[in-house]
Write a protein that binds this DNA or RNA. Structure first.
Lengths: 415, 415
DNA sequence: TCGACATGAGAATCGGGGTACCGAAAGAGA
DNA sequence: TCTCTTTCGGTACCCCGATTCTCATGTCGA
């Protein structure tokens, strides 16, 4: 094919122009997608089309089920291996008509795909040759687009980290910088952190991006995956309205991530709503603390979503640190532990349950599967051995906090 | 009186030698005291003497009651005004026989006193002249003694502050330095802090010194008055034995200081026992924190003596700091306060009492002088308005801590 | 090796007291 | 005047707490 017969051997200012040119040359509706099946451009003046294409254009992305069936049928794998056009038979279940696809590749790496529908006519060999030439032309555009996009992504990510680490001295300054990157920071924001069991592989970033951005209830402004955490900056507002929405958002995030990813999320939490863009870091630190504490005390804090719900638990990291720093150990607990060890008793567990049940002997007894009198007896022993006065609230609270602290510091090494 | 007839016109290597020389010249028992009536030297070979002198020599200090009666009789004031010998008539109640005293003065400032007893014979004018000359000779010795003592005191004080502020990198190093000042730092020490209502005037340091050093139960190593605080480093040991002694020591310190000083002590506390001399600062900071918290929560912590008794109260300064830093306010308490303000109710007080009484409705009702059912009703309202679940221990503890924190932060400005 | 004894652990019984629930009545505010 | 809030009396019920008893375990000395 020489230059005269290659209609794509010229400069295209927009990807849309290229799509139109391909469409006209092939006399077929054409869509151009990136490697993640997001719509980049599509030819206009298409007389006919199929449901899958409509859904793709409306959603600006190939529907998940279509992508899924294309994977199952081996179409995508085949496209990823060859530069040659691949003919795809219609798949009625997902509204996919006959079509031809060609991958846009660079050094074996897929940059995107061009799809040509065979709604009006079957594409002959000439058309397939044209399609291959079109892929070559699209490659140049996609490479430029990608490098541009990557640069923008990097700048956004840098901005996000700057916000998270409080690098901007003032809110307005941060907002100005954000606007130069096309991001409008609203009056109130909050940070969401989702903790995964292990580091999130690069391959999953795409799915996470999709799940985060497809949210309806709250508007995510920026997000980044860092190690085993997903961090999201969302628009916020004061009041229960936002709380409900945010709660719903985090819930659906966890659900969707859990369903689609093998590396399931363990916990998620939201920092306080900040009205100053320069205080995003505050919200971030709170969300981090929340997630950390939720992992440590799933039974106690598992249901919490917002930092302020933590109550005194938010001070636990400090208490643990102090305990280590001062080599502090509650004298009463020390004695009780020694007794437990020597007599194979479980006074500490009994005390813990009793305190957790708010001093309700009956409930605690039921919880421990012992007779109420047994519990009464044990409490008497605990008071004797530990030198504890159960009438003193302060002592009880001290014990409760020390028990929690010990629980944490005993297991926190792995974190 | 020329040089030949003045037996004191020579060098005395020790104050004792001077005392003996005076005694022999006057043929009378002689004692030399400093301005605080501490015994500096006394003549030997005294055939007779009186009970007051014996007590002075035994106690190395003029007994308090003797000093008191000398003040009342105007002897001391007179001595402070003149260089001339003053004749003192016997005061039988305190075992004081006839004697003559002369003050040792420098620029109108009293450095000490010489006392000569008239047990064997009345002192004639010649003897009084000799006594005046003796005072002149003693002045030289006392001035040197005082400058030397002051220097030692300063070095001791410096060492103490170095210990209190953890300036010594290692325990052995600190001990070596202490030994060079004649202080043996024992294996275990603890710091006691006594807080006064106002700054302690210079004039009271003497009395404080006496009270501290006259302790029997524990051995004070160093002490210093700093602003409105008295800081004492004491020998310590692990175990209940020391705890009882130390408790007794602090108790008697407070009692004696309270009795003798107009500027009464407000609180006192002991930091943890430290086995490393380089960790004295730790004990000091704990004692400081204890005293600070005891002042803030006298009802709750007034009976405490040791830092570890504080329980969770030891974290209150941090909690208050965090509250200010994060502008945190418990949402439930905020609503309850708003309700109290609008409806002239006292839900917060009710809640506080209920929590302080450990959820015992009857006791709390009695404390508030309301019917038990009234309290039950109020608690129902509190739960509604504040969104509190009284079945949740964590919520209750959070509320309790936040109430304490608010109480502190509301009044802490004056400290 | 045995029984006597002490101690620890748990269970049965029962009386007094605290709590939950209902309702009446007084007070405050619209 | 009506309604909501607040207080407090009455009552039934259940829980706690003290006492006592049983049973297992361990430790002596004979």
């Amino acid at each position: 094919m020489n230059a005269d017969t290659n209609p794509f051997n010229r400069h295209f200012d927009h990807l849309e122009t290229l799509a139109d040119t391909i469409g006209e040359s092939l006399r077929a509706p054409v869509t151009i997608e990136d490697a993640g099946h997001r719509l980049l451009a599509y030819s206009k003046h298409d007389p006919k089309t199929d449901p899958a294409r409509i859904a793709t254009i409306i959603g600006r992305r190939v529907p998940e089920n279509v992508v899924g069936s294309l994977w199952r049928d081996g179409v995508i794998p085949k496209l990823m291996e060859t530069d040659e056009p691949v003919r795809v038979r219609s798949i009625d279940e997902v509204g996919l008509g006959d079509r031809v696809a060609v991958s846009i590749r660079q050094n074996g790496r897929v940059l995107g795909y061009i799809w040509a529908l065979e709604v009006e006519r079957k594409l002959d060999d000439d058309a397939l040759h044209l399609l291959k030439a079109a892929a070559e032309a699209a490659k140049i555009k996609l490479l430029r687009l990608q490098s541009q996009k990557r640069k923008e992504d990097e700048e956004r990510r840098d901005l996000f980290w700057e916000l998270l680490t409080d690098r901007h001295p003032s809110g307005p300054q941060a907002k100005t910088k954000a606007e130069s990157l096309g991001i409008r920071i609203p009056d109130a924001t909050a940070v969401v952190v989702v903790q995964f069991a292990a580091d999130v592989e690069e391959a999953l970033h795409q799915s996470i991006h999709y799940i985060v951005t497809s949210s309806r209830r709250v508007r995510p402004l920026l997000h980044v995956v860092s190690g085993s955490q997903l961090i999201v900056l969302t628009e916020a507002s004061a009041g229960p309205r936002f709380e409900a929405d945010a709660s719903e958002f985090v819930g659906s995030l966890l659900r969707q991530l859990g369903e689609r990813l093998a590396n399931a999320p363990l916990a998620a939490g939201i920092g306080s709503v900040q009205e100053d863009a320069a205080a995003v870091g505050q919200s971030y630190r709170e969300a981090l603390a929340l997630v950390r504490i939720k992992r440590q005390f799933p039974a106690e804090t598992g249901a919490m979503t917002f930092y302020r719900e933590l109550g005194f638990y938010r001070h636990l990291p400090y208490l643990v640190e102090q305990k280590k720093l001062h080599r502090y150990e509650n004298a009463a607990l020390k004695r009780l532990r020694a007794y437990d060890r020597e007599h194979h008793a479980n006074l500490v567990e009994t005390l813990e349950t009793f305190l957790a049940r708010d001093g309700n002997a009956k409930e605690a007894a039921d919880m421990l599967h012992v007779h109420a009198n047994t519990l009464a007896y044990r409490l008497k022993r605990i008071a004797e051995i530990g030198g504890i006065d159960f009438g003193d609230v302060d002592q009880k609270i001290t014990l409760y906090l020390d028990l929690k602290t010990d629980k944490w510091s005993g297991t926190t090494e792995r974190l």
